[in-house]
Design a protein around this nucleic acid. Structure first.
Length: 467
RNA sequence: UCCCCGCUAGCUCAAUGGCAGAGCGUUCGGCUGUUAACCGAAAUGUUGGUGGUUCGAGUCCACCGCGGGGAGCCA
């Protein structure tokens, strides 16, 4: 394995005159009369190591195998590069071929490929410039998220992937079962006769993949004060858009002794922190995105990291939209949910920066959000970002037992299914709040990538679960 | 799931119902150290699938599949 100091990113920082050995995959090769240039990359950084092979240095048979896609080891001397583009280059003395790649069939040749094509070769696309940058940024982002919360004393909690509380209510869920689907056990008699007998299933009742760790995170917040989850989440919605996945990663902080104002402060501080971290640690990758994917990325990130987010209430947003000099496809009135066109207008045209919209009508938000004194709005917040829409959704939670119980009843939910959630309000309840951030949505924002399927290693969407 | 658009060489795309094309990549040759190198030449096709209309279908029609954009749902 590569020890620290032997990655290409380390080799590129070493002084000329050093003897080094580099490992990696050939990105491209250019031939001149007496010299060959090989771009070598091991994924450790955006920049390739330029390997220079003087004619006659290597056996013709070896040289012939140094083709795009091949995996090689190069031993040689690091020297100052006489040409622009790189400070140092590796003058090869010997090359070992680990694995060749037939140029006639290797699909990742040096040319522009569409994202759609690269998605079909997800086992190879990670070696491309774009996806190398995407996954380095994804890695840095993940680390920055942990660091942000750890620095603030948040406890990292692992909420369950499999859940039997079909009560989360956040969209369609994937079933989890060991029953034989071709031969389902049925209840023989009684009022439920003919229905599937889940008492024979693995968990003795219907089970699903989680759609959110929030309710369980609340349990931990009421013992550890500040906690966060960071894990996979599953939605069986038939959503076919560039912004939805059936399997995605979500970060959900939950804070006791916190109201909506504190929640908003944390969300803004959090977004700025992770943006700054990625800008500090992945600048060459971001510069590439800015050059080839979206030429507004760097400017937008700098702007967001340094400017204050706009804050408006839902009621103010409706009033703004009603006065907007344009016609809406979906009508704007108090009580209507904000549509994509409305969110985009607010964040892209009115404010031109992230906007936090708060205090939505109770009817269009989840039962667990804290009721305001006006009795018609709840302490919800959505952070809207230009181009991708809602990036964070959160709220102050209803901590009052009676109010929560009434809201559960009013929404026609079975309060017995929420027995432990209600008990949290009975024993040592506290004001608390939290939010959810979609990791992939954040990555789209950071990279300018247009399709969420291109910021996750192996996307799962309706009708697609390859690799 | 709904609306719109698309599917032709490895990739990106042309082709009035009448001989299947180009650029890039690949291969070969040239070029004084290149940077998405450059110059010249060559090879490369079950036109997404199944039916249908027609003397004749890449082109028109039907159904199916896949992809993209927009919408809904949301993170």
């Amino acid at each position: 394995m590569l020890e620290p100091g032997r990655y290409i990113k380390d080799i590129l920082r070493q002084a000329p005159g050093t003897a080094v050995t580099a490992h990696g995959w050939v990105k491209t090769r250019r031939d001149s009369k007496g010299v060959h240039f090989v771009q070598l990359n091991d994924g450790s950084c955006f920049q390739d190591l330029q390997v220079v092979i003087e004619a006659g240095t290597l056996a013709e048979a070896v040289l012939k195998q140094v083709t795009t896609g091949a995996c090689i080891r190069v031993e040689g001397d690091l020297v100052e590069s006489p040409a622009a583009g790189q400070a140092v280059e590796l003058r090869a003395r010997a090359i070992h071929i680990f694995g060749e790649a037939d140029p006639a069939t290797y699909p990742l040749q040096k040319k522009g490929h569409t994202m759609e094509f690269l998605r079909e070769i997800a086992h190879l696309r990670v070696r491309s410039n774009t996806f190398g940058a995407v996954f380095r940024v994804r890695n840095a982002l993940s680390f920055a998220i942990h660091r942000f919360f750890q620095e603030r004393g948040f406890l990292y909690v692992h909420t369950p992937i499999i859940t039997t509380s079909d009560a989360e209510g956040a969209g369609a869920m994937f079933g989890v079962t060991t029953l034989d689907l071709m031969n389902l056990p049925r209840i023989a008699q009684g009022p439920q006769a003919g229905q599937v007998d889940f008492s024979q299933d693995f968990f003795g009742k219907p089970a699903h993949l989680t759609v959110s760790g929030q309710l369980e995170a609340e349990i931990f917040a009421l013992a550890f004060a500040n906690v966060y989850t960071f894990g996979p989440t599953f939605r069986a919605e038939n959503s076919n858009t560039p912004r939805h996945l059936a399997e995605f990663w979500m970060i959900e902080p939950e804070m006791a002794f916190c109201d909506l104002a504190g929640n908003m402060r944390l969300a803004e501080e959090f977004l700025k922190y992770i943006i700054q971290y990625v800008m500090e640690h992945c600048l060459p990758d971001l510069e590439f995105f800015n050059k080839r994917i979206d030429d507004t990325v760097l400017q937008t990130l700098e702007h967001v990291a340094t400017s204050d987010f706009a804050h408006i209430t839902y009621t103010e947003a409706i009033s703004l939209l009603e006065k907007a000099p344009r016609t809406w496809e979906f009508p704007v009135y108090w009580g209507a949910d904000l549509q994509s066109e409305h969110e985009r207008y607010l964040t892209e045209e009115t404010f031109r920066r992230p906007v936090i919209v708060t205090d939505y009508p109770r009817e269009i938000k989840a039962f667990y959000m804290r009721l305001n004194d006006d009795g018609r709005t709840v302490r919800a917040m959505d952070v809207l970002a230009p181009r991708i829409g809602e990036i964070i959704g959160g709220s102050q939670r209803e901590e009052r037992y009676d109010v929560l119980r009434d809201k559960i009843r009013q929404q026609g939910l079975d309060e017995r299914a929420y027995w432990w959630y209600l008990e949290l309000r009975k024993y040592g309840s506290a004001p608390h709040a939290g939010f959810g951030l979609g990791l992939e949505r954040m990555l789209m924002y950071l990279t300018g990538m247009k399709n969420i399927r291109d910021v996750i290693p192996f996307p799962r969407t309706p009708g697609y679960a390859e690799f």
